[in-house]
Amino acid sequence: MTEPAGKEVRNSTKTKRILHILLRVLVAVVIAILLFIAIVYTVNKISSHIEQNRMEQYGQHVSVNRKRMNVFIQGQGEETVVILPGYGTAAPALDFKPLISELIPYYKVIVIEPFGYGLSDQTQKERSTANIVSEIHEVLQHLHVDRYILMGHSISGIYSLDYVNQYPNEVKAFIGLDSSVPSLSEQKIDSSEIEPIKWFRNLGFARLQLKLGADPYDGLPYDEQTKERLNILRYKNMYNTTQLNEAVSMYSNFKAAEQLTFPSNLPVLFFVQADHPVTDRWIPEHEKQIEKSVHGEMVLLEAGHYLYRSHPKEISEKIRDFTGKIK
């Protein structure tokens, strides 16, 4: 009768040994994860501090709502082109450099870096179209610029729709660089959904994500110094709170724009990617936006969404031709 009892003792001892090993493995895994997080966090903090000291200033600051908005101005042309960036563009003044270089022999070019972009401050103010448009206009008023061609990439197409209707006597023409259209709305994002992204950013994983990702400027006409500055600002601005708040407001901004159209007498020129990777409605919806325009044109390019990076010369030449006809 003692043998079964001894067997039970041996089985119990074996079970405890296995559980002890599993517990030690679990503790080791947890420690390894915490150590990895600590390394990522520390590297990000140190790198951010070093990069902050290396960052070269560019442009000039304009005070808007007691905060600084960065503006980059080049060129001496009679016509002024005001450029607005797409969502999440880390440093618009640097990102548009290939196109700016092509435009400045003929135009005065102003690149506005909205709050949360480039070297501009962040803001807690709601990222509604109304606020963004008001801030952009205040910058131009401060610069005494009251007649200009407005150019917008991606989401700035939505903001520009509101802008050209509010300030029709100031905007001479609109140029869309694969600009967003209200009928193809972004997915709704709740404010609670951005909290994990803030943790992801604050712990330094945004930097790791960028390092592991492909270089968006590889093979494009950017010099090494510009690429280095762009990377520094990508690390600085990715998933910042202002841009995340803009993402939360994006759905309602699209919905509000559904009621807007470009004024029929406003010249509109669209540069559109010929083969959109997600929707086959991209070209038709842009065609609808200019069907009632007295002077509306669309140019299809075999390019990606950031077509101004890869096709600056073609875009510049067409803009010169287009603006020459509307003087």
Rank of each mutant, 00 (worst) to 15 (best):
S191I: 15
D190R: 13
S185K: 09
K188W: 03
E193G: 01
Y163H: 07
I158W: 01
D162L: 13
Y167P: 08
D190P: 00
S191R: 15
K172L: 15
K198L: 15
K172T: 14
S160E: 04
D178S: 11
A173H: 03
V171A: 02
I197G: 01
K188C: 01
S183E: 15
G204S: 09
H153S: 11
I175H: 04
V181E: 05
G157I: 07
Y163P: 02
P196D: 02
G204P: 09
Y159L: 08
I158D: 02
F200V: 09
E186P: 00
I158F: 02
H153R: 10
E170L: 03
E186D: 10
G157T: 09
N169H: 14
I194F: 08
I175L: 07
V164E: 08
I194D: 10
D162G: 09
F205M: 12
F205K: 02
L203Y: 13
P196C: 10
I194G: 10
G204F: 06
Y163K: 03
I197Q: 08
P168F: 12
V164Y: 07
P182M: 07
I197K: 06
L184W: 00
I189Y: 06
I155C: 03
G157A: 11
G204T: 05
L161I: 11
G204N: 05
S156K: 06
K172A: 14
N202Q: 13
S154D: 15
V181F: 08
S156T: 09
L177H: 01
K188M: 13
L177K: 03
S154Q: 11
L184R: 01
A173Q: 04
Y163Q: 05
I158H: 03
K198G: 01
L161S: 06
Q166H: 14
Q187S: 13
Q187G: 05
N169W: 01
Q187N: 13
E193W: 12
D162P: 00
S185H: 00
S180R: 14
V164Q: 04
E195H: 08
I194Q: 10
S180D: 13
S179R: 01
L177P: 05
I194R: 11
N202R: 13
V181K: 04
E170N: 14
V171R: 02
K198Y: 09
Q166F: 00
S192K: 14
Y167V: 10
G157D: 09
Q166D: 13
S192F: 14
S183H: 06
S180F: 05
K172Y: 04
S160M: 07
L203F: 15
I158L: 12
N202V: 00
D178W: 03
S185N: 00
E170C: 06
A173V: 07
S185V: 05
I155H: 03
G176D: 06
V164C: 06
V171Y: 02
L161H: 07
S183D: 14
K188L: 11
Y163E: 08
W199Q: 12
L177M: 12
L184P: 00
